[in-house]
Design a protein around this nucleic acid. Structure first.
Length: 505
RNA sequence: GGCGACGUAGCCAAGUGGUAAGGCAAGGCUCUGCAAAAGCCUUAUGCGGGGGUUCGAAUCCCCCCGUCGCCUCCA
């Protein structure tokens, strides 16, 4: 079975097939940059990132565009309050956003585009909509005429009449239809503006995403993603104006919307003071743990943020990275081959002898079990991801594989199955964006490696004299410095307990 | 009020007709000088509540309860 995506437009899961075979064009709505990046911004960015990663792993070429809406009433008002330009104001939050994305390993975006760099595209688009009879100028503004096409409301699943019935805001009487929305807003005092055929002004909300996606991705895009709070009016309006512009539906083949993030069961909002800045979160938790947390819920479901939940994710991440690191060490070092194979084989055959818990599987059994687990995990992982990007289910497969790897690592080892398991595990983690090099893979730090080898040698010597006080002191001091030492049957091993510092570029 | 989504163990969360994945937490055991890590076992006759369809329902239908989102510009 191939990838299926839930399409908001049809309200069904549909087999995914891009318009052009092998090539996927996707656009996701980034933030309006009027404040610091918060964890609510992360979900759509992460969903798009994982989707792009998965598509690439399936062999698709993916062109992925994300936008910044950097001109908007909130931006203008706040910039004016601070006495800075809207541009400088927006830049501050764009930088914050990009830095968060970098830390989180959101790497699939080919190009971030901003509205103020595309005013000419926007004006050209509005101009044609006016010419086509889909929009009309009005006192320096330009409005889109929602009655100019029959299918307005198809994404939201509501007719114009139904929308009017639910209207909770006073209607601007000048407009042809109450639902008509602004494509262009005439300038008001204190606002940035650009010249246009309708006088100086700025783009309305909605038109920018259409203009920029048409510019970079053409008349038809395969996937358009965003939060489900954008379904109406933002995406509805994008469809209307884009299809009115090109005269060639569908503008978007698959509309992908993620559920909202809540904080402790309530809506995240400034007034409630439960706004969590992504930067602060990333200072307190490892970025992969944050990613893992977000991926434990299927993207369309609403999800709840809580300290407890992200703490659990942090421990889950520790399990993943340790398995990965132990696997790496096992494959990097010569496999311990102490016990003769024959002895191990005998242990298995001794069916009635001893408790089951102490029975050691043969090397052959262990290898077969691991191979089987790898295949099962790959199958389950793909099935889950194919089913509308079910990352929660996919993580179940990952953890199943981790358990199998840990078991294999504890018993007699055979190199090739372990290497297969490592490849499979890394491939899955790569799709989920959790494959960043573990901190302990500090192979490039020769001095650290050398010092640790020395310390562990000394400690082993102390242990051989049964000088536990000395051995424990070394271990405790290292622990305090962020180096965990563990004694295993194959000798001591160590790793850093904190994430590696960002590599110096 | 209208439209939509969601409600599965102590917590998080998969599972859309065939008898409840996975993670975290907790308890027991194994390994260990101790510890850590890991492995094994235990923890939902039960899937918000109530009806119904069916040989069989967390999954389908109806009603109810609860939570959340959206309901033009002004945001």
């Amino acid at each position: 079975m191939a990838l299926q995506l839930y399409n908001t437009l049809t309200r069904r899961k549909e087999p995914f097939e891009p318009a052009e075979p092998g090539r996927v064009r996707m656009y996701d709505c980034g933030p309006t940059v009027y404040s610091y990046t918060h964890i609510g911004h992360l979900r759509p960015a992460l969903v798009a990132d994982v989707l792009a990663r998965y598509l690439r792993s399936l062999g698709f070429e993916v062109v992925h565009i994300t936008n910044f809406t950097d001109v908007d009433d909130r931006i203008i008002n706040r910039a004016n309050e601070e006495g800075v330009t809207a541009e400088a104001f927006a830049n501050r939050y764009i930088d914050d956003y990009l830095d968060c994305m970098r830390r989180l390993g959101i790497t699939t975006v080919d190009r971030y585009v901003r509205v103020t760099d595309h005013i000419a595209d926007i004006i050209a688009m509005i101009d044609r909509l006016v010419t086509n009879g889909h929009a009309y100028p009005l006192d320096g503004d330009v409005y889109y005429d929602v009655t100019s096409k029959e299918d307005y409301g198809k994404l939201a699943g509501r007719s114009l009449d139904e929308m009017l019935a639910g209207a909770r805001v006073a209607v601007d009487e000048r407009k042809h239809h109450p639902m008509d929305f602004a494509l262009w807003k005439g300038v008001k005092p204190g606002e940035p503006s650009w010249p246009s055929p309708w006088g100086p002004g700025r783009p309305g909300w909605h038109i920018e995403c259409s203009a920029m996606s048409l510019r970079y991705l053409g008349d038809h895009i395969d996937i358009h993603a965003g939060g489900d709070d954008l379904i109406f009016p933002h995406h509805e309006n994008e469809i209307a104006q884009s299809e009115a512009f090109t005269g060639d539906a569908p503008f978007v083949r698959y509309w992908v919307h993620n559920g909202m993030l809540q904080i402790d069961q309530t809506k995240m909002s400034k007034s409630l003071g439960n706004f969590i800045r992504l930067h602060e979160l990333l200072d307190r938790f490892p970025a992969p743990a944050v990613r893992l947390f977000m991926l434990t819920t299927q993207y369309r479901k609403p999800m709840n943020y809580s300290e407890a939940a992200i703490g659990e994710a942090e421990r889950g991440w520790a399990r993943l990275r340790q398995a990965r690191e132990h696997l790496r060490q096992a494959l990097g070092a010569p496999a311990p081959q102490r016990a003769p194979v024959a002895v191990e084989e005998e242990l298995v055959d001794a069916e009635g002898a001893g408790a089951a818990a102490t029975a050691v599987p043969s090397r052959r059994q262990s290898a077969d079990a691991l191979r089987q687990a790898v295949l099962a995990a790959q199958t389950a992982f793909t099935a889950a991801m194919d089913d509308d990007l079910n990352t929660a289910g996919a993580l179940g497969a990952v953890f199943d594989l981790v358990r199998a790897v840990n078991s294999a690592l504890a018993g007699p080892r055979e190199r090739e199955p372990l290497a297969e398991a490592e490849r499979a595990l890394n491939a899955m983690l790569e799709v989920l964006g959790l494959a960043a090099e573990p901190a302990a893979a500090a192979g490039d730090d020769r001095l650290l490696e050398g010092l640790m080898a020395l310390l562990l040698d000394l400690r082993e010597e102390a242990r051989s004299y049964r000088d536990w006080a000395a051995a424990d002191r070394i271990r405790e001091r290292l622990a305090a410095m962020g180096v965990a030492v563990e004694d295993t049957a194959a000798g001591p091993r160590w790793q850093l307990t904190q994430e590696a510092p960002a590599p110096r570029a």
